[in-house]
């Protein structure tokens, strides 16, 4: 790369190298800043190259993200980032594509595309910033808002039930599902690295605090003071413990439900070991009602399957193999005849 260009990023780049000259225009204190920082920190760690990286977004606060990453970027239209990412990846599978979306963009107006992205398993990283509110349109209830959410569009409280993003992703056939928190600066890069390593749609839900329209909606489990008791960080092959190892999860085999048990004197034999390839366990962790249970975070499910663009390109190659792309021959196919001479018409 030409060192003269302002946007040349040296090998072993620092996070700052991934920032653009554009002024970041999120509200002061917005959780998006923390996520941006974490993504910029992750880029050097995964050995990303700016020219091979594309950030694609829809519409909403989170979707401004591409403007702040010194990579290729496409800020598209509401809900449609997965569709544009699909075209990009099918046209050039070498590109490393990240989709940035939110709860409204990804699960409401773009819910259909989310479903099909996940079932096809296109090789992209999808970061869903969930703040349970429409921020950019000034605070209406979103599809993840809890029942009873008061907002300008639901002044008497919302009456519809929210969607659980990770449950949606799992139901849609997603093969990599992770959950984290905007302020978990240590954990986000770990999860992003895992998401990046997975070949397929890596679905990462990030609880993101909207300081203006939905402040502290996640405080019950994001509050640092209480984090140990309210957060359960799942790690593959390790027991599902929280509260500094004093509590754990056990499967009640009679009811096929999880239950919280106290760990007495380190006796963890009955605690479930996290198996991220176990879809049933992922479902149980995702569905745990918060309060009675801690919030399950980390890589909840990872069971890789062939990615969509690989399958498409393999078929394209297989079908084309041995065939000559002769356009003149192609257009001459079909029911044909030759008129030899203008004077004699019969063939």
């Amino acid at each position: 790369m030409n060192d003269m260009t302002a946007i040349a990023i040296p090998d072993g780049s620092k996070p700052d190298h991934w920032a653009t000259d554009q002024e970041v225009r999120w509200c002061p204190g917005c959780g998006d800043y923390a996520i941006l920082k974490a993504v910029q920190r992750t880029m050097p760690e995964i050995g990303a190259k700016p020219e091979n990286t594309v950030f694609v977004s829809g519409i909403g606060c989170s979707s401004r993200f591409p403007y702040y990453m010194e990579t290729y970027g496409f800020h598209t239209i509401h809900g449609r980032a997965p569709t544009i990412a699909t075209g990009i990846k099918l046209a050039n599978p070498e590109l490393d594509v990240w989709i940035i979306t939110g709860d409204g963009d990804g699960l409401s107006i773009g819910g259909n595309h989310m479903l099909h992205l996940l079932r096809r398993n296109l090789d992209v990283q999808l970061l869903l910033f969930n703040n349970e509110i429409y921020g950019l349109t000034k605070g209406q209830a979103s599809p993840t808002s809890r029942t009873g959410t008061k907002s300008p569009s639901t002044p008497f409280g919302s009456v519809d039930r929210p969607v659980n993003p990770c449950a949606f992703a799992l139901g849609a056939g997603g093969r990599f599902i992770a959950r984290t928190i905007d302020t978990a600066q240590k954990h986000i890069p770990t999860i992003l690295k895992r998401a990046h390593a997975n070949k397929g749609t890596s679905f990462v839900e990030i609880y993101q605090n909207c300081i203006v329209y939905n402040d502290d909606v996640f405080a019950a489990f994001t509050d640092k003071k209480n984090a140990a008791n309210t957060q359960l960080w799942a790690e593959h092959g390790k027991p599902l413990l929280f509260a500094n190892g004093t509590k754990g999860l056990r499967l009640n085999t009679a009811t096929v439900e999880l239950e919280v048990i106290d760990i007495i004197e380190g006796a963890t034999e009955v605690v479930l070991i996290h198996d991220e390839t176990n879809r049933m366990l992922a479902q149980l962790l995702i569905d745990m009602p918060f309060g009675e249970f801690p919030m399950a975070l980390g890589v909840l499910y990872c069971d890789p399957a062939p990615s969509f663009e690989t399958a498409v390109i393999e078929q394209n190659h297989a079908v084309a193999k041995g065939k000559k792309a002769d356009l003149n021959a192609l257009i001459r196919k079909g029911q044909s005849w030759t008129v030899h001479d203008a004077a004699t018409h019969k063939m």
Partner: peptide
């Protein structure tokens, strides 16, 4: 995209 030195954003 993939061309070195020409990263940019559109929308």
């Amino acid at each position: 995209p993939g061309t070195p030195g020409l990263t940019h954003r559109i929308g």
